[in-house]
Structure formats: structure tokens, C-alpha cells
């Protein structure tokens, strides 16, 4: 049956429903368990193998030499990161993990560096 206004009952029904919109800063979205968010790096576990920097597709992870260290260790620039999780996957000692944090917009670029 072709009649105009096929959605009439549907739209009037939605008038009394709670809107589907998530009012973001007031309502928090549900973050799933294996979300790929901000990178966390555990220096005590790291063996300085450099696999993470080798596999990083965007060059966000680089090996940097620090004065107190003998070997260079990875430094992550979240401004370049794709959050693919390849570094965490390839790490033989689980020294890198991706957390559920996702809000890091900033005016200060240095706050995006994870060491």
C-alpha cells in the first residue's frame, strides 16, 4: 500500500521517547574493555629492543637516547599516533599498553609526549 506519510506513527512515537543523542560532556560514553586509547609505557619492563619503533606505521614511536640510559628507549608522540596498537602487540615484554583514556586535546604539544 503506497500512501504518503508512511512514517507518521513512527515519528509521533518518537516524540515521547528519550532522544538517542548522548550529551557528551555531561553524559559519559561507554568505553569498551579493549579500547585503544592513550599509550602507557612501563620503563621497568622495557628491554630496549626497538621493535615498537620499527613497526610503528606513523613514526609516532621513536627510539630516543637519554643521558641516564645506556641504550635508547621508545618515546611516543600521541600527536602522530594512529592508536593501531601495533607497538603493544609486537612488544615482547608487554612494556606498552593502550588504556581507556581518550581525552587529550591540548594547546601544549609537550603534554602529548609519553615517555
Amino acid at each position: 500500500m503506497k500512501y504518503p506519510g508512511a512514517m507518521l506513527s513512527e515519528i509521533w512515537r518518537h516524540l515521547i521517547k528519550k532522544p538517542a543523542t548522548v550529551l557528551y560532556p555531561l553524559e559519559r560514553p561507554q568505553i569498551p574493555e579493549n579500547f585503544r586509547g592513550k599509550i602507557e609505557y612501563y620503563d621497568d619492563k622495557c628491554i630496549r629492543c626497538g621493535l615498537c619503533a620499527r613497526d610503528c606505521p606513523s613514526g609516532a614511536c621513536t627510539m630516543k637516547k637519554f643521558e641516564e640510559d645506556k641504550k635508547p628507549r621508545p618515546v611516543f608522540d600521541l600527536g602522530m599516533c594512529l592508536f593501531c596498537g601495533q607497538c603493544a602487540e609486537v612488544c615482547p615484554k608487554d612494556a606498552i599498553s593502550l588504556t581507556k583514556k581518550f581525552e587529550f586535546s591540548t594547546f601544549d604539544k609537550s603534554s602529548l609526549i609519553v615517555e
Binding site: 569498551p32 579493549n34 579500547f35 585503544r36 594512529l82 602487540e89
Partner: peptide, 20 residues
């Protein structure tokens, strides 16, 4: 997002199978 951890670029594939 529930399975892969992201809404758009799922990063599920790898050479040799899937990651998750």
C-alpha cells in the same frame, strides 16, 4: 568498537590472521 577497540579503523587484520 566493542570487539576491535575502535569505531572506524579497526586494526583487526595482520599478515597471518586477525589480531583480536
Amino acid at each position: 568498537e566493542l570487539i576491535s577497540g575502535n569505531r572506524v579503523n579497526y586494526a583487526m587484520n595482520t599478515v597471518g590472521g586477525t589480531r583480536r
